[in-house]
Amino acid sequence: MTAAPDSLAAPAHNPLASLTGLAFAKGHGTGNDFVLVADPEGARDIAPQEVAALCDRHLGIGADGLIRAIRSEHLAEGRELLAEDAGAIWFMDYRNADGSVSEMCGNGVRVFVAFLLEQGLASLDPGEVLPVGTRAGIKRVERREGGFAVDMGPWEFIHPAQAEAEAGDSLVTADGLDVSRPALSVSMGNPHTVVALAEGAELERLRLFSAPVVEPVPPHGTNVEFVVPAEPLVREGVGSIAMRVHERGVGETQSCGTGACAAAVAIRHWAGAGAPNRWDIRVPGGTVQVAFVTGIEGAEHVELSGPAVIVAHGAIG
């Protein structure tokens, strides 16, 4: 009698076995999707390899990242933010799909607030604002018709002297581009490198299965956005661009909120005087809106708005 193959005789180790019974939700903001876990008291830290297993699209739940809802008082970073704003009760503990820690996610923070509301962990009427703790500081989220708007805080160039003096501060090489292209690096609390392309066909030809090469790369790596301005760029006072993104530690995603903000910063900078302060950013998963507003301290902030949807619930079996 022929022996059974080893793969049948000895089942492979299940990397999710340690998470048996863990309740989760699945949500997305314009296709940027997340596994969400409520852990108010910080009782269940999820290890990087467990995050990667949960986010695996073939062997796990599948997501661009994992968001853990934890009370700010249970994390050192959160306690620092509570000293700044006692209302920042909840902390968005965000991990990339590979398990690495990330500072912030613009789509993720909208989905995070939608999750808090659905779970009864917070309440927020239309027009009200909820402060949320993140590793990029406190983000204030306003509930609006059709979704949420987030004050993403001030932006800055990663290499300000080069950004002001030249068309870009780095070169990006990517599969599908014939030559390396100049790029501009922008911090939205996390790093982004923005490349402008001439036409939609170039955007479509990109193969973002592997990470683009950025030279010089920012100290902690970078997300890379490829953008094509609309023709005309501005209609009725609103600018419009199309974007694809390769996210650090994830790969190509359907959307990136902080990336959309960085793209608007870069395109407005390149467009020069008279460029608008409101932008529609079209991504594979839909459209988000970016606006430049004056923050509480007088500095220019970026506001991101768009939908957030919770699509499913489950438990690890």
Score class of each variant (00 low, 15 high):
E252F: 00
P276E: 14
Q289L: 08
N277V: 08
A260F: 01
A273F: 09
G286C: 11
A242S: 15
G249E: 01
A263P: 05
A273R: 06
V283A: 02
G286S: 03
V250C: 04
G272T: 02
V283F: 01
A262N: 14
V245I: 15
W270Y: 08
P284I: 08
R282P: 07
W279M: 11
T258Y: 06
V265D: 02
H269T: 06
E247K: 05
A275W: 14
G251W: 06
V250Y: 00
E252H: 00
H246G: 03
G251K: 03
T287Q: 14
A263V: 02
E252R: 05
A266D: 04
A271F: 09
M243N: 02
Q254R: 09
R244L: 15
A273N: 07
H269N: 11
G286I: 03
V288M: 11
H246M: 07
M243C: 04
G285N: 01
G257P: 03
G285W: 09
G274E: 13
R244E: 11
P276W: 05
E247N: 10
V288A: 01
S255N: 08
D280P: 00
R268N: 07
A262L: 12
R268H: 12
A271P: 04
A266Y: 13
G274Y: 07
A260G: 10
P276M: 12
V283I: 15
A263L: 06
V290A: 08
A263W: 09
G249M: 03
A271H: 14
E252M: 05
V288R: 02
V265T: 05
G257T: 11
R278D: 12
G259L: 08
C261A: 08
A275C: 13
H246S: 11
R282E: 13
V265H: 07
V250F: 04
T287V: 15
W279Y: 12
W279Q: 10
N277W: 04
I241V: 15
G272Y: 14
A264C: 15
S255G: 06
G286E: 15
R248N: 06
M243W: 00
A273K: 08
H269C: 05
I267Q: 14
R268T: 08
A262D: 08
V288I: 13
R244C: 13
M243S: 03
G251P: 10
I281K: 06
